[in-house]
Write a protein that binds this DNA or RNA. Structure first.
Ligand SMILES: [Mg+2]
Ligand SMILES: [Mg+2]
Lengths: 613, 613
DNA sequence: ACGGTGTTTATAAACAAGATG
DNA sequence: GCCATCTTGTTTATAAACACC
C-alpha cells in the first residue's frame, strides 16, 4: 500500500539541540534591530515562517544569518508565481549560512503543519506580511549520519519488519485507529484489530500486555471519551473533538514524502492549534478557549520512536535568495527536498516553561513591519471557567506546564538568561552497532515459537495461559513464556557492555535479577536504543479528511467554525495567549539527503554548510 | 505524638462486597414499598443516613431489615436529647438484623465525613426529614478476623514499624504534606522531607525511585499545581483549591478513633463534595459546578493499603430502637464504637457507572416522609463550561466515568439488571499466616544494611551509586543494591503457595526471575497481600483546619462560600446532580470490636449477628 | 468461573532544563 | 567558561489490582 522512499541517508541526533528559551531570547531581545522595520530587520540564522494573505503555497528556503526579509519575500513570491502556483502561501526559511546553521521550533512545526494540512485555514491574516518570526535555532552539527542504519535500510527498504515496534505511542495509535473511521469512533476490540492490522508487531511479537496498555491509555487520557450506543450495549471510544487533530496514519505517511527527517515534539501541535483558536476568536484577549484542556503529545520521544516523515514540498520550489544567500545551493536543497526519506521523531516534551508574554504591536502589524517584543505582562487569561483560580494565576518559571505565580506579584519578565547551548552529543556508532547485533536475537527469542502466538486463550487464576491482556502476578511460579519478549528493562544486563561505559566491577555473575539496575544513579542515559531502527514505512495517499465531513469534527474544523472575521491577529499575539496554554514545545529536525545515497558512511559530523557550495 | 488504639481486633475482607448498582437497584426499584410513606417504608438492611435540621450530632445505630423509620428517628432524637446533646444531627444506621447484614456505600461515606468534619456545613437542609436513603448493602460475612495481625499488633501496638510501607497512595501523601502547611504549599524538597519524616519507610527502606514517583504524581495529577515565587526562583507545589479536601494525616488519624475498620473508596468523597456543592447552589439543576473536574481518589485500593480509621462517634450514643431491633445490643455497639482500632482501606475505584437520576419528591419532603425513587431521566447538566461537548452528552452504561451517549438518543433508564451478589471470598487464614512469616524476612533483607542508607550520593552516568531518584537503565550491569527492597511484585514467587490456590505444577525451582509471572493469565488475583498489615498509626489532635483560615482554601470552604440560602435541596437531589459527576464510589467497612480483644483468632467467619444477642 | 472491558495506582524510564560545583 | 552531576519536572510504558458485565 505504501511506498517507502529509497535509500535515505538517515541521520541521528542524540540530544535536543534547542535552548529552552530560544524564542524568548530572540524575540524578546529586540536588541538585534530595534528599528522594527521588517524589511530591514536582521534575523539570526533560523527558520522563518512568513504568512502573507496572497500566498497560496509553501516554500522552504534556507536563509543566511542576516537577510533582508522584504527581499526574501519578494524573491519567494516571484519564484512562486514563476513556478506556476499562484504564489507562495507560506515560506519556511531554513538557515543556510554555514557552520552555525540553526533551525527553530515553532516555525518548523508550522512547516510540518502547513504541509500536512494544505487546506488548513489559518484564519485571517494581515494584509501585509506580519507573521515573521525567528523562533529559535538548532545546531545541526548534532545531526549525524547513521551508516549502519542506512545500510540496513538499503538492504530492504520496504520490508517493514513485523518484529519491530512501531514508533508511535499508544495514544497516537489509538488516534490513528479512531480517526480512520468516518464516524470517528471505535470499539475497544476494533481498536485492537486496527492496530494489529496496521502494526503486525502487536499481533505477532508484543506481549499480551499491550492491550492492557491500550485500555490504560483510553482511560487515562481525557481526550478519549467513551460513548455508548442507544441500547446501551456497545461502548464506542471517541476522541474529544476539541482535542482531535485528526491525525491518521495516512497523514503521517503523507508527511513522510520529502525533505527532512525531523523530530518534533507534538505538543507544538497543541501550541499551533491554540494559536489557531486564538486567531479565530474575535477578541483574542479573553477568549474562554476551553482553557483547562491540554492537548496531549502524540508520539513518545524515545530514540526508539523515530518516525519516517517526509515533507511533500508540493511545488517545492527552492529559490535563489539575495546576495547573502550566495552560499546556498538551490539545487542541493531541491535534491534534498524531493527525494530523501526521513524519520520524524515526535516526542512529547513541551518547550515553553513559563512562556513570557510576547506580542506584536497591533498598530504596526498593518504596516508590513514586524515587531517581536516582549510584553512584560502576565495576562490573566483563562480564568473564564466557573472554577477559575481565586488568586493564583500568573505562570512562568522553570520547566513547563501550568505554572502559577504565587500571589499575583508584580508581573516580572520571565525570560531566562542562560544561553549555554549544549548541542547534541556525538553518537557512539559502535555501541549502536552492538545493540543492533543484539536485538535480533531478542526478537528471535520472542517469536521463534509462533505456534504459541494465538494460544493465549485459556483461563486465568493461577493457570499459565497468557490469556488475559491484564498482566497479573502469578500466585506460584511458572517458567518463562514464549512471548516473554525482550524484557529489556529488567534483564538487559545480560547483553553485557553494550554500553560504551564500562563499569569497573564488570558484569555481575549472579543472574540474580533483583533490581540490579536500580543501583545506577539518576537521569540515566540509555544511549543504547532499545528499538534502534524503525522500519521504513510506506506512503499512501490520504483518502478523506480534505474537507470537514460533518458530524465528527476535528479541532481544526472546530477552530475554523468560529472564524471568518478577518481581524488583525498576528502570530505573536497567539504567542501571548499561549502563555496561558500550558503546552508548547519544540521541534527537532534531522535532515536526510537522498542525493548522498552512496557516499556517506564515513562522516560523523555533518552540517548544512557541507552541502552549500 | 499520636496514640494508637489498643489491641484492636482486626478484620480482613478479601473482596469488595458491593454490587455495582446497589444504589440504583434499591432506590430505582421502588418496588419494595411503592406507597412512598417514609414512616412505614421498609428498607433492606443497610446504613441509613438521616439528615434533619434540628440535628446537631451524629449517631450510629443498627437497624433491622425492616424498620419504621419514623419510629427510629423519634427514638434517635429522643435519645439524643436525653444524652445531653441538642439532638442527633445525623443518624447512621447499621443493620443488625442477623445473617444478612449489610452496609452501604454512600451513607457510610457520609458517616465518615460527618465524623471528620463536624464543623462541616452541609448546607441548608429541609425542615423535615428528607435525606433518608438506603444506598446499598454489604455482606459483612466477608469480614473476617485476622488473628495473626491482631497478635502482632498486640505485641507492639504503637511500634509503627518503619519497614512497613504506609497505606497511602503517593497522591494522598502529597496532599497530607501540602495541607500540613498553613499556606498550603510546599517545595518538592519539603514534600520529600515531610513524607520521610512522617513515614520513615521512605527514608529507610524505600528505593530511591519513590521520589521519582512523587514527582510523577505531582506532574500527572492536575490537582497539583506548581507556583513560583515572585522572583521566579522557587517552585511551590499547591493543591488546586477546588480539589483540595484538606485532608491531613492528622485528620486521617482523627477519624481513626472509634468504631469501625472501614475501607472506603475515596471517590466517594468526591461524590460527597459534589453533593455539598449542589446544595449550596440555589438552583441546583444547572449549576456550573466546575463540571469537568474529577476529584482524584485519595488512597489506593490494594490490600496493601489498609488504613486505620476510627469513627469518633462523639456523643456516640447508641440507642434502643423499635421492636424489630430486639436483636440489637446497644452495649455491644457502644463497645465497638468507642474502643477498637481499625483499618480503613481507601481505594480509588469509582462506583457509579451511569448513576441514574435519583431524587426525592420535593413536595413530600416537607412531611417527614422519605421518598427514594428513581427519576428515569438523564439530566444533561454540566454543559456549562465553554467547551461543552456539542452533541454528545448523555452518560450511562457499563463501567463508570465520563460516559457519553452516542447521539443524544432517548434517555433510557440505565439501571443495570444483574443483581448477582458475589460477596467476599473467605479469607484463607493459613495462607495469610504464611505470608506474614515471609515478609519479615524481606524487610530484614532490605533494611539490614543501614550503613548504605544514605550513601546514595554519587554520580550518575554509568556509575552505580543510586544517587538519583530517577531510575535508569544501567548501561552495564551491577550487583544488587542494599536498598533493593521487597521487589514483591517481581519476586514474590519465592513465597511459594501463599496463595490459597495451588498450581498443579507447583512452584518452579528456577530462580530465573525473568517475567515468569507474565505467563499467568489475566485479572490476577494476588490474594497474597503485598504488605499485609499496615502498622498501627498513632492518633493526635488535629490542630488547625477547624475554621477557614483565609488564603488557602479547601473545597469545603469554597463550597460554603456560596451557601447560606436555606433552600430545600435534599440529598437525593444531590444524587441527581451527581449523575453528572463522574466519580462516585463505594465504601467498604471492616468492623473491629475492641471488646473482643483476646478471644477471636479461631473464627474464620464473623458477622454482625455474632455480636448481637 | 472466566474473559473482556474499564479505571486507577505504582514503578521504571527517557529526557529536558536549571542549578551547582 | 566548560563540564559533569544533581535536582526538578514532564511524559510514556508497563505491570498490576480490582471492578463490573
Ligand atoms: Mg479517557
Ligand atoms: Mg500537576
Amino acid at each position: 500500500m505504501r511506498r517507502s522512499p529509497r535509500r535515505p541517508l538517515i541521520l541521528r541526533r542524540r540530544k535536543l539541540p534547542f535552548q529552552q528559551n530560544d524564542l524568548l531570547e530572540s524575540s524578546a531581545s529586540g536588541s538585534k534591530d530595534p528599528s522594527g522595520s521588517a524589511a530591514s530587520q536582521s534575523f539570526p540564522d533560523g527558520i522563518c515562517i512568513l504568512d502573507h494573505p496572497s500566498m497560496s503555497d509553501t516554500q522552504v528556503v534556507v536563509v543566511p544569518k542576516t537577510v533582508d526579509l522584504q527581499g526574501v519575500i519578494g524573491a519567494l513570491t516571484a519564484k512562486g508565481k514563476e513556478s506556476g502556483v499562484q504564489g507562495p502561501n507560506k515560506f519556511i526559511l531554513l538557515s543556510g549560512s554555514g557552520g552555525s546553521e540553526t533551525l527553530d521550533c515553532f516555525s518548523f512545526f508550522n512547516c510540518i503543519n502547513l504541509v500536512i494540512n494544505k487546506d488548513l485555514d489559518c484564519g485571517p491574516l494581515n494584509d501585509s506580511l506580519t507573521n515573521i518570526q525567528w523562533l529559535g535555532k538548532m545546531n545541526t552539527s548534532a545531526l549525524e549520519p547513521d551508516p549502519a542504519q542506512n545500510a540496513e535500510i538499503d538492504a530492504e527498504a520496504v520490508k517493514q519488519p513485523v518484529t519491530e515496534r512501531p514508533p508511535y505511542s499508544y495514544m497516537a495509535m489509538i488516534q490513528f485507529a479512531i480517526n480512520s473511521r468516518k464516524d470517528k469512533r471505535m470499539t475497544l476490540k476494533e481498536i485492537y484489530t486496527w492496530i494489529e492490522d496496521n502494526f503486525p508487531y502487536f499481533r505477532q511479537v508484543a506481549k499480551p500486555g499491550w492491550k492492557n496498555s491500550i485500555r490504560h491509555n483510553l482511560s487515562l487520557h481525557d481526550m478519549f471519551i467513551r460513548e455508548t450506543s442507544a441500547d446501551n450495549k456497545i461502548s464506542f471510544w471517541t476522541i474529544r473533538p476539541e482535542d482531535n487533530r485528526c491525525l491518521t496514519l495516512d497523514q503521517v505517511y503523507k508527511v513522510s514524502t520529502t525533505l527532512t527527517t525531523c523530530t518534533l515534539y507534538s505538543d507544538v501541535l497543541s501550541f499551533y492549534f491554540s494559536q489557531q483558536q486564538k486567531k479565530v476568536v474575535p477578541d483574542s484577549r479573553k477568549t474562554p478557549s476551553g482553557s483547562e484542556r491540554r492537548i496531549k503529545p502524540l508520539l513518545p520521544r524515545t530514540d526508539a520512536y523515530l518516525v519516517p516523515i517526509q515533507l511533500p514540498i508540493a511545488a517545492a520550489s527552492s529559490i535563489y535568495l539575495q546576495p547573502s544567500l550566495a552560499q546556498f545551493s538551490p539545487s542541493c536543497l531541491k535534491q534534498n527536498t524531493l527525494r530523501g526519506g526521513k524519520r520524524v521523531r515526535i516526542a512529547p516534551k513541551v518547550t515553553q516553561d513559563g512562556v513570557p508574554a510576547v506580542a506584536v504591536n497591533p498598530q504596526e502589524s498593518k504596516e508590513s513591519k514586524v515587531m517581536v517584543k516582549v510584553e512584560p505582562v502576565c495576562v490573566p487569561i483563562k480564568c473564564e471557567t466557573p472554577k477559575c483560580l481565586p488568586k493564583r494565576q500568573a505562570r512562568s518559571s522553570r520547566r513547563k506546564q501550568h505554572l502559577v505565580h504565587s500571589r499575583q506579584e508584580e508581573p516580572v519578565l520571565l525570560c531566562s538568561d542562560s544561553s549555554l547551548f549544549d548541542s547534541g552529543v556525538g553518537f557512539d556508532a559502535s555501541a549502536f552497532q552492538e545493540m543492533r547485533d543484539m536485538e535480533p536475537d531478542e526478537h528471535q527469542q520472542e517469536s521463534h515459537s509462533p505456534n504459541q502466538e494465538f494460544s493465549f486463550k485459556t483461563p486465568i487464576k493461577s493457570r499459565s495461559h497468557l490469556t488475559s491482556s491484564t498482566p497479573s502476578k502469578p500466585p506460584s511460579n511458572i517458567l518463562a513464556e514464549p512471548w516473554k519478549v525482550t524484557p529489556v528493562h529488567k534483564e538487559s544486563q545480560n547483553l553485557l557492555d553494550c554500553s560504551p561505559i564500562h563499569t569497573p566491577g564488570g558484569p555481575a555473575v549472579t543472574p540474580l535479577h533483583d533490581y540490579t539496575n536500580f543501583s545506577f544513579s539518576s537521569t540515566p542515559f540509555k544511549d543504547v536504543p532499545l528499538f534502534n531502527s524503525p522500519r521504513e514505512l510506506l506512503t499512501s495517499v490520504p483518502s478523506r479528511l480534505t474537507g470537514p465531513t460533518d458530524s465528527p469534527r476535528c479541532s481544526r474544523e472546530l477552530l475554523q467554525a468560529g472564524g471568518g472575521t478577518p481581524t488583525n491577529h498576528s502570530i505573536t499575539e497567539g504567542l501571548v495567549l499561549d502563555t496561558m496554554n500550558d503546552s508548547l514545545s519544540k521541534i527537532l529536525v534531522d535532515i536526510s539527503f537522498s542525493g548522498l545515497d552512496d557516499e556517506d558512511l564515513g562522516m560523523t559530523n555533518i552540517s548544512w554548510s557541507d552541502f552549500i557550495p
